[in-house]
Amino acid sequence: MKLQGKAHCFGADVNTDYIISGKYKFKTLDMKELACHVMEDLDPDFATRVQPGDLVIAGRNFGCGSSREQAPLALLNAGVGAVLAPSFARIFYRNAINTGLPVVECDTSGISAGDELLVDLENGVLRNLTRKAETPIKPLPAFMLKVLGDGGLAAHFRKYGTFNID
């Protein structure tokens, strides 16, 4: 899987309340509506600026806080192609894979907003096309790669009827 897009940069400890506020997420199952408010408390214009396939770049502990799956779903529905961060909070990480949003653990310190990036998940490398730099990425555990490849956990379950971890 290869993903290419423009970088949008955020800091460390971006929590799920910032990704999608509780005041919106309890009201609806319409993820397109939630996508209009994604990252609103950190960057009110993000939802209008983000283009399909763009990449969210962050510092460590991305997605800390609540278990709301609306967080990866709002990012996906806003068009975000993947999130890149040095580390992720555990529940967000699982939710992202389960819903089909690629999450990439790597050093993001050299990336600036607007950089054109190419993520090569199979070969475990991030190419910064703007800066002509390469960074290794931490490979996803085999089972999670399988779930992501299936299109998320719902599709995985439809296919196997259970967790196929072997």
Partner: peptide, 20 residues
Amino acid sequence: TGVGSTDLAAGLISGQMWFK
């Protein structure tokens, strides 16, 4: 432990969950 909605759905169907 806390999980998301899709994990919960899988847990409701199978009575199981995967963990590292």
